[in-house]
Amino acid sequence: MAIIKAKNLGYEYFRRDKEGAVEGIVKALDDINLNIKQGDFVAILGHNGSGKSTLAKHMNAILYPSEGTIWVDGKDTQDAGNMWDIRQTTGMVFQNPDNQIIGTVVEEDVGFGPENMGVETKEIWERVKESLKIVGMYSYRKNAPSKLSGGQKQRVAIAGVVAMHPKCIVLDEPTAMLDPVGRREVIRAVRALNDVENITVILITHYMEEVIYANKVYVMDRGNIVMEGTPREVFSHVEELAKIRLSVPQATKLAYELKKAGVPLPDGILSAEEFTEALCRLL
C-alpha cells in the first residue's frame, strides 16, 4: 500500500516586494505525482529552490497543496482532523542540527515527541532507550546536546522522530551541514532504520553518494519531477543531470568519460568497487 501518494500536486505562493505588495506568483511545485510504498528508501535530488523542501513539508502537513491532493497513509492532508495523525505517521528531520533539538539533555530531547503525543511515562522511557540504541547514541543519553558533534546531533534528532513510532521519516538535507564523518554516521543510521525497522525513508539531499542506497530516486528541477528511477537508471543520464547542473558520483563520472573515449563500460556504475570490477572484466 502507498504510504505517500500525490496526485497532480501543485503549490503556489505570492512573491512580495519590500512593501508587501504582491509582485507575482511563484509556482514552487507543479503537477507532482508520487507513489511511495511502505518500506521504500526514496531519495529526492535537486538544487536549492527546486521545490524539494516544499514537497517534503507537504508530507508532514506543514504546507497544504494549492492544487491536487497528497495522501499520507491514505489520509488527505487537507482534512484538518488528520493533521496530528499525519505528523505522527511521518516524522521530519531538518537540515540544521542546532535548530531542532529541544531538550537540554539527549534523552529529554528524544522524549519530547512521545510527551506531546501523550504516551505513558513508562513507555516513553522504553521508546527513548530503544530509539537511541537504533541510532547508536544510547551511551550519550545523559549528555548535553550542545557538546555533541554535528553527526551525533542529527542522530539524536532522528532518534527523536523514531521514538514517535512513525511509519515514514522524511529527512530534509540532514547531512548538508556535516563533515564527511558526520555524513557517514547519519547515512548509516538512516539505512539501519530502513533495513532493520522497515521504516519508509525519504531522503532529500544533494550529495550524490548518499543516493546510491535508495531503491528509487526522484530528480527535481524548478518544481517538477524531471527524472525518476533506480539510482542506476538515473545516473545513466550523466548529460541530462549535467544540464541541470547536478553532478554524479566520481566513479560514475570516470566511467562516463571512458565511455566517451570508446571504452565499452556498462551504464550506471555507482561506486569505486563496481567500476573496478567492470574494468577488470574488460581485460
Binding site: P180, A251, A272, E273, F275, T276, C280
Partner: peptide
C-alpha cells in the same frame, strides 16, 4: 584519521590490489 582519498585514487588502489 577518519579522512579518505579522492574516489579516483581509491579506484587506482583497488585496481592495484587486483594486480593491475
Amino acid at each position: 584519521m577518519g579522512l579518505s582519498v579522492p574516489e579516483v585514487n581509491k579506484i587506482m588502489h583497488l585496481l592495484r590490489e587486483k594486480g593491475i
